[in-house]
């Protein structure tokens, strides 16, 4: 079992790793790529930079710095986190166990701007397959997404639902392995229903009617599970049952502790200033707090 698993390898995750490593906790960092820093062409406002640095360069320096301290970095995408006393981190590279987890995957993604998603929340739209699969026994369900995260959610549903289809909403599917689940890549126009979800209205861009309007079709679905992109910190926290703020960020205290013992969060996923400096501070604090938590647990 790992002592501390850090999800994310940006400024928050790597800062957490540095402090945890110096606290002798031998942390494991799960790295799923660069994140928001990719978009930062030049960073000029961070302490000590006498010349601007690109976001990518900063990210790579961070990885190199952590490696130089002996931190282990695993390239993997997190699909979900479960467990009660200890944590079970499900990743594309297998399931890992840890005493403490720090979420530092960067900012939350907004709900997909598909009409009906927000409106039907709680009436057929769900964000947690493991929680809600039960209600769709023998029913037809849709999973929105195009990556392993969506595949993982679909697989939670497949044994209960009568049919599961992954809808990529016009995006290319990116699954890291073969699977038997149906995939529909057409663009989605809306989630439809009356008092609850009844189907997905698709817009086919290949077949247009004679007057030029794109042809539409409605696929029946009793439930729609949202798993767009990769599982971000907020999605993971929500599925675990950590409290979120009204804006959908992870709620943390001054120690970067979430409302779940042993689970910490740092960086953009906690909201506030979306700056490297803030991520570094929070990551450092989370690294220290998680180390203290693991030490206390060992003594208990």
């Amino acid at each position: 079992m790992e002592k501390i698993i850090i999800v994310g390898a940006g400024p928050a995750g790597i800062s957490a790793a540095i402090y945890a490593a110096r606290g002798n906790m031998d942390p494991l960092v799960l790295n799923n790529g660069i994140g928001a820093l990719e978009k930062a062409e030049k960073i000029e406002n961070y302490y000590g930079l006498d010349r601007p640095l690109s976001g990518r360069e900063l990210y790579e320096r961070g990885l190199a710095q952590a490696r130089a301290l002996g931190v282990r970095i695993l390239d993997a995408q997190v699909l979900g986190v479960g467990g009660f006393d200890t944590f079970e981190v499900r990743t594309t590279e297998g399931t890992l166990e840890a005493e403490s987890v720090i979420l530092a995957t960067g900012g939350k993604r907004s709900t997909p701007p598909i009409p009906g998603v927000k409106e039907f929340e709680g009436r057929g739209v769900s964000y947690c397959a493991v929680c809600d699969a039960f209600f769709y026994r023998g029913k037809e369900v849709a999973v929105l997404g195009n990556s392993d995260f969506a595949l993982h959610e679909a697989e939670e549903l497949v044994n209960l639902a009568s049919g599961v289809t992954i809808y990529t909403d016009g995006l290319e599917p990116h699954f890291s392995r073969e699977h038997p689940i149906a995939v529909n890549t057409m663009k989605i126009q809306a989630i439809e229903g009356d008092s609850r979800v009844s189907g997905i209205r698709l817009q086919s861009d290949v077949t247009a009617l004679e007057d030029g309007t794109p042809q539409e079709s409605v696929m029946p679905a009793d439930g729609v599970f949202v798993a767009v992109g990769v599982a971000g910190s907020s999605e993971i926290a929500r599925q675990m049952g950590a409290e979120l703020t009204e804006k959908g960020h992870i709620k943390v205290d001054e120690k970067m502790a979430t409302t779940i013992p042993g689970l910490f969060a740092a960086g953009d996923c906690t909201g506030g200033l979306l700056q490297v400096s803030k991520a570094v501070y929070e990551g450092s604090q989370a690294g220290i707090s998680a180390s203290q938590y693991v030490r206390r647990r060992g003594n208990a």
Binding site: G82, C128, V130, C131, F134, R238, Q239, M240, G241, E243
Partner: peptide, 11 residues
């Protein structure tokens, strides 16, 4: 609620 639902156990 249900026993197998993580968020429910926190609720």
């Amino acid at each position: 609620w249900a026993t197998w639902c993580g968020p429910c156990m926190r609720q």
